[in-house]
Protein backbone atom coordinates (compact mmCIF):
# COMPACT_ATOMS: atom_id res chain seq x y z
CA UNK A 1 0.00 0.00 0.00
CA UNK A 2 2.88 2.37 0.79
CA UNK A 3 4.04 1.87 -2.80
CA UNK A 4 0.70 3.08 -4.19
CA UNK A 5 0.46 6.00 -1.80
CA UNK A 6 4.01 7.33 -1.88
CA UNK A 7 6.24 5.69 -4.45
CA UNK A 8 3.81 5.37 -7.36
CA UNK A 9 3.21 9.17 -7.55
CA UNK A 10 6.97 9.77 -7.43
CA UNK A 11 7.50 7.16 -10.15
CA UNK A 12 4.80 8.75 -12.33
CA UNK A 13 6.42 12.18 -11.90
CA UNK A 14 9.85 10.77 -12.74
CA UNK A 15 8.73 8.89 -15.85
CA UNK A 16 6.46 11.63 -17.26
CA UNK A 17 9.03 14.31 -16.43
CA UNK A 18 11.86 12.52 -18.24
CA UNK A 19 9.57 11.55 -21.15
CA UNK A 20 8.42 15.10 -21.84
CA UNK A 21 11.83 16.65 -21.22
CA UNK A 22 13.31 14.37 -23.89
CA UNK A 23 10.32 14.84 -26.20
CA UNK A 24 11.62 18.33 -27.03
CA UNK A 25 14.75 16.83 -28.60
CA UNK A 26 12.90 14.28 -30.77
CA UNK A 27 11.51 16.08 -33.83
CA UNK A 28 9.54 13.05 -35.01
CA UNK A 29 5.83 13.32 -35.98
CA UNK A 30 4.98 10.71 -33.35
CA UNK A 31 6.69 12.83 -30.71
CA UNK A 32 4.80 15.94 -31.85
CA UNK A 33 1.53 13.99 -31.79
CA UNK A 34 2.26 12.86 -28.25
CA UNK A 35 2.79 16.48 -27.21
CA UNK A 36 -0.47 17.57 -28.84
CA UNK A 37 -2.36 14.74 -27.16
CA UNK A 38 -0.94 15.38 -23.71
CA UNK A 39 -1.71 19.10 -24.03
CA UNK A 40 -5.36 18.15 -24.58
CA UNK A 41 -5.15 15.76 -21.63
CA UNK A 42 -3.85 18.53 -19.39
CA UNK A 43 -6.78 20.74 -20.43
CA UNK A 44 -9.21 17.96 -19.57
CA UNK A 45 -7.57 17.32 -16.20
CA UNK A 46 -7.56 21.11 -15.62
CA UNK A 47 -11.35 20.97 -15.96
CA UNK A 48 -11.48 18.66 -12.95
CA UNK A 49 -9.26 21.10 -11.03
CA UNK A 50 -11.91 23.74 -11.75
CA UNK A 51 -14.50 21.41 -10.21
CA UNK A 52 -12.37 21.29 -7.03
CA UNK A 53 -12.15 25.09 -6.87
CA UNK A 54 -15.82 25.72 -7.59
CA UNK A 55 -16.93 23.09 -5.06
CA UNK A 56 -14.86 24.85 -2.43
CA UNK A 57 -16.59 28.18 -3.26
CA UNK A 58 -20.02 26.47 -3.20
CA UNK A 59 -19.25 24.95 0.19
CA UNK A 60 -17.99 28.24 1.69
CA UNK A 61 -21.13 30.16 0.77
CA UNK A 62 -23.50 27.26 1.52
CA UNK A 63 -22.16 27.18 5.09
CA UNK A 64 -22.70 30.96 5.39
CA UNK A 65 -26.30 30.64 4.20
CA UNK A 66 -27.08 27.61 6.37
CA UNK A 67 -25.73 29.24 9.54
CA UNK A 68 -27.27 32.59 8.60
CA UNK A 69 -23.92 34.27 9.26
CA UNK A 70 -23.66 38.08 8.85
CA UNK A 71 -23.85 38.89 5.14
CA UNK A 72 -25.47 35.56 4.23
CA UNK A 73 -27.82 37.42 1.89
CA UNK A 74 -24.87 38.35 -0.33
CA UNK A 75 -23.89 34.67 -0.48
CA UNK A 76 -27.44 33.89 -1.53
CA UNK A 77 -27.20 36.52 -4.30
CA UNK A 78 -23.90 35.00 -5.41
CA UNK A 79 -25.46 31.54 -5.58
CA UNK A 80 -28.55 32.76 -7.44
CA UNK A 81 -26.53 34.76 -9.99
CA UNK A 82 -24.04 31.95 -10.51
CA UNK A 83 -26.75 29.33 -11.08
CA UNK A 84 -28.69 31.75 -13.28
CA UNK A 85 -25.62 32.44 -15.44
CA UNK A 86 -24.91 28.71 -15.72
CA UNK A 87 -28.53 27.95 -16.70
CA UNK A 88 -28.62 30.73 -19.32
CA UNK A 89 -25.18 29.73 -20.65
CA UNK A 90 -26.09 26.08 -21.01
CA UNK A 91 -29.43 26.98 -22.61
CA UNK A 92 -27.60 28.73 -25.48
CA UNK A 93 -24.74 26.15 -25.57
CA UNK A 94 -22.22 28.66 -24.24
CA UNK A 95 -22.57 30.91 -27.29
CA UNK A 96 -22.51 34.68 -26.82
CA UNK A 97 -23.80 35.45 -30.31
CA UNK A 98 -25.88 33.50 -32.80
CA UNK A 99 -25.93 34.81 -36.39
CA UNK A 100 -24.47 38.10 -35.18
CA UNK A 101 -27.19 38.62 -32.56
CA UNK A 102 -26.25 38.59 -28.89
CA UNK A 103 -27.76 35.75 -26.86
CA UNK A 104 -28.93 36.14 -23.26
CA UNK A 105 -25.54 34.77 -22.24
CA UNK A 106 -23.82 37.42 -24.39
CA UNK A 107 -26.05 40.06 -22.81
CA UNK A 108 -24.91 38.99 -19.33
CA UNK A 109 -21.30 39.12 -20.49
CA UNK A 110 -21.57 42.59 -22.06
CA UNK A 111 -23.85 44.30 -19.56
CA UNK A 112 -22.95 42.66 -16.27
CA UNK A 113 -19.53 41.04 -16.39
CA UNK A 114 -17.63 43.59 -18.51
CA UNK A 115 -18.82 46.69 -16.57
CA UNK A 116 -18.19 44.99 -13.22
CA UNK A 117 -14.73 43.79 -14.23
CA UNK A 118 -13.77 47.12 -15.82
CA UNK A 119 -14.93 49.17 -12.85
CA UNK A 120 -13.38 46.82 -10.31
CA UNK A 121 -9.98 47.25 -11.96
CA UNK A 122 -10.56 50.95 -12.64
CA UNK A 123 -11.03 51.83 -8.96
CA UNK A 124 -7.61 50.33 -8.35
CA UNK A 125 -6.23 53.44 -10.08
CA UNK A 126 -7.31 55.49 -7.05
CA UNK A 127 -5.84 53.07 -4.54
CA UNK A 128 -2.59 52.73 -6.47
CA UNK A 129 -2.32 56.53 -6.52
CA UNK A 130 -2.86 56.84 -2.76
CA UNK A 131 -0.47 53.94 -2.07
CA UNK A 132 2.09 55.61 -4.32
CA UNK A 133 1.77 58.87 -2.41
CA UNK A 134 2.59 57.07 0.82
CA UNK A 135 5.41 54.90 -0.48
CA UNK A 136 7.00 57.00 -3.22
CA UNK A 137 7.95 60.05 -1.19
CA UNK A 138 11.56 60.49 -2.27
CA UNK A 139 13.10 59.49 1.03
CA UNK A 140 16.18 57.95 -0.58
CA UNK A 141 18.03 58.20 -3.87
CA UNK A 142 16.55 54.89 -5.06
CA UNK A 143 13.00 56.00 -4.24
CA UNK A 144 13.63 59.24 -6.13
CA UNK A 145 14.76 57.27 -9.21
CA UNK A 146 11.63 55.10 -9.00
CA UNK A 147 9.39 58.14 -8.65
CA UNK A 148 11.05 59.92 -11.56
CA UNK A 149 10.75 56.87 -13.85
CA UNK A 150 7.07 56.45 -12.92
CA UNK A 151 6.30 60.12 -13.58
CA UNK A 152 8.12 60.11 -16.93
CA UNK A 153 6.31 56.93 -18.08
CA UNK A 154 2.93 58.29 -16.97
CA UNK A 155 3.53 61.56 -18.81
CA UNK A 156 4.82 59.81 -21.89
CA UNK A 157 1.66 57.77 -22.26
CA UNK A 158 -0.87 60.61 -22.45
CA UNK A 159 -1.15 63.38 -25.04
CA UNK A 160 -1.13 66.05 -22.32
CA UNK A 161 2.21 64.79 -21.00
CA UNK A 162 3.75 64.83 -24.43
CA UNK A 163 2.33 68.32 -24.98
CA UNK A 164 3.86 69.62 -21.74
CA UNK A 165 7.19 67.78 -22.10
CA UNK A 166 7.67 66.98 -25.80
CA UNK A 167 10.49 64.50 -25.14
CA UNK A 168 8.55 62.45 -22.59
CA UNK A 169 7.16 60.08 -25.25
CA UNK A 170 10.62 59.23 -26.59
CA UNK A 171 12.12 58.90 -23.13
CA UNK A 172 9.24 56.63 -22.10
CA UNK A 173 9.88 54.40 -25.11
CA UNK A 174 13.58 54.27 -24.24
CA UNK A 175 12.86 53.42 -20.60
CA UNK A 176 10.41 50.68 -21.61
CA UNK A 177 12.39 49.23 -24.52
CA UNK A 178 15.91 49.41 -23.12
CA UNK A 179 16.16 49.96 -19.34
CA UNK A 180 13.01 48.04 -18.44
CA UNK A 181 13.86 45.33 -20.99
CA UNK A 182 17.31 44.80 -19.46
CA UNK A 183 15.84 44.32 -15.98
CA UNK A 184 13.10 42.03 -17.28
CA UNK A 185 15.71 40.01 -19.10
CA UNK A 186 17.85 39.61 -15.99
CA UNK A 187 14.80 38.62 -13.94
CA UNK A 188 13.73 36.12 -16.63
CA UNK A 189 17.19 34.54 -16.57
CA UNK A 190 17.17 34.30 -12.76
CA UNK A 191 13.60 33.00 -12.51
CA UNK A 192 14.18 30.51 -15.33
CA UNK A 193 17.28 29.09 -13.65
CA UNK A 194 15.19 28.67 -10.52
CA UNK A 195 12.33 27.05 -12.46
CA UNK A 196 14.69 24.57 -14.15
CA UNK A 197 16.30 23.70 -10.81
CA UNK A 198 12.86 23.22 -9.21
CA UNK A 199 11.65 21.07 -12.13
CA UNK A 200 14.72 18.85 -11.81
CA UNK A 201 14.16 18.55 -8.05
CA UNK A 202 10.53 17.56 -8.69
CA UNK A 203 11.40 14.99 -11.35
CA UNK A 204 14.07 13.37 -9.18
CA UNK A 205 11.77 13.30 -6.14
CA UNK A 206 13.75 15.76 -4.01
CA UNK A 207 10.90 18.27 -3.94
CA UNK A 208 7.68 16.57 -2.80
CA UNK A 209 5.55 19.43 -1.45
CA UNK A 210 3.10 19.06 -4.35
CA UNK A 211 2.06 15.65 -2.97
CA UNK A 212 0.69 17.38 0.11
CA UNK A 213 0.79 16.18 3.69
CA UNK A 214 -1.60 13.75 5.29
CA UNK A 215 -1.22 10.03 5.81
CA UNK A 216 1.59 8.27 4.00
Amino acid sequence: MIFLRRQLPLLITFVTGLLFATQYYVPHPASERMLTEVTKWLQIIGGFALVLGVTSLFHLHAVKIRRKEPGWGYSFVLYAVMLGTIAVGLWVNGKETVNGTATAFGWIYSNVMVPLQGTMFAILAFFIASAAYRSFRARSREAAVLLLAAVVVMMGRVPLGEYLVPLSGDITQWILNVLNASVRRAIYIGVSLGAVALSLKIIFGIERAYLGGGKE
Partner: peptide, 11 residues
Protein backbone atom coordinates in the same frame (compact mmCIF):
# COMPACT_ATOMS: atom_id res chain seq x y z
CA UNK B 1 -1.15 15.72 -9.22
CA UNK B 2 1.97 13.64 -9.90
CA UNK B 3 0.99 13.35 -13.56
CA UNK B 4 0.31 17.08 -13.97
CA UNK B 5 3.45 18.13 -12.10
CA UNK B 6 5.61 15.56 -13.89
CA UNK B 7 4.41 16.55 -17.37
CA UNK B 8 4.64 20.25 -16.48
CA UNK B 9 8.19 19.92 -15.15
CA UNK B 10 9.32 17.83 -18.10
CA UNK B 11 7.82 20.26 -20.61
Amino acid sequence: FAFIVGVGSGL
